[in-house]
Simulated scan of single mutants.
Amino acid sequence: MFLPEILNLGNVFKQYFEIVPAYSSKLKDEVYRLRHKVYCEDLKYEQIQADRREVDEHDSYSLHLLMRSIKTNEFVGCTRIVRPRLENPRHPLPFEVICSGMLDQSIMDPIQLQRHSMAEVSRLAVISSYRRRKDEANRAISISDDDFGTSKQPRFPFIPVGLYLGTTELARINGITTLFVLAEQRQVTHFSKLGVELHVVGKPVEHRGPRVPAVMNVNDIIVNMRTFFRPLYQTIAADIKRNMSQ
């Protein structure tokens, strides 16, 4: 990683972005509109909706998160944490349906976990004006080696990492300890570069490209976080705490 470690990532982040948990109906609508732009209009993953909102059956059981640009005040990214249903905790999460028969239960069997403390990260999306590189054109969000720049031209992927860390903090404060995700294989590698251990728990599946089911432990992410990233995490945690009432 080429970014100088003397740089305070938290101070840099808050000059440009803010993390906002979407608890109100108004903010959830912002999430659904942003997702429609990315998933329906840009990437054609879902059908265009008349109301320009991308919503599915899992949204009412989810925690939602937005990233706002300080400069323009527009929302530029979002994600959600899908939780098991209180009335039926064993109802499968989206990845359990997509990966049916492909999970390695000798590594981890989601059905045997305490369902109230597990969840799935999905619907990560960034608007097109912030997905500038050619290799991002067909992806809702990504991290690549180029995001870390070179020793002469250092850079840092604040948007995807900000959304990931925001998801981690939102999970923590809601008592979620285990997070599943359908990830590209290269994402597993890039997560490890950020100091996050993503454990693959099944065979690759086809879901908008090849994906592998993976799991991460929320407490381990926080406890084992590299010193370099901690100011960024603290800034994002403060954003979430400040904006909880919105």
Results as ranks from 00 to 15, higher is better:
T189Q: 11
D42W: 04
L27Y: 09
F17P: 00
A125D: 02
K193D: 02
I240K: 07
V55L: 13
F180M: 09
S142Q: 12
I6K: 08
K44Q: 14
E120K: 09
T72E: 14
P204E: 04
D145N: 13
R230A: 10
N174H: 15
E54D: 15
L182I: 05
T167Y: 00
G175N: 10
R132C: 13
N219C: 04
Q246P: 00
A237M: 04
L170K: 03
K134R: 13
F229E: 05
V55W: 02
K37H: 08
K241C: 07
G175C: 08
H190G: 00
V55Q: 05
E57S: 14
Q153P: 01
G195C: 05
F156P: 10
N174S: 07
N138Q: 15
V12S: 05
K28F: 04
S100E: 10
P160F: 14
L182M: 11
L66P: 03
M216N: 00
Q187N: 08
L66K: 08
R172I: 01
S192H: 08
G10N: 03
L63M: 12
R155N: 11
H190V: 00
G162W: 05
A137G: 06
P160K: 14
L93D: 01
H190E: 05
Y45Q: 13
N219M: 06
E87C: 07
V76S: 06
P210I: 03
I70A: 12
V181T: 07
S69K: 11
K203R: 09
G149T: 09
L163D: 03
G10S: 03
R132V: 15
G149W: 11
N11K: 13
E74N: 15
E54I: 13
Q114E: 11
N224C: 13
F180D: 02
M118A: 08
S144Q: 12
F148Q: 08
S24A: 05
I81K: 08
R53Y: 04
G166L: 06
M118K: 04
Q15R: 12
Y45H: 14
V31N: 03
V31E: 01
N243I: 02
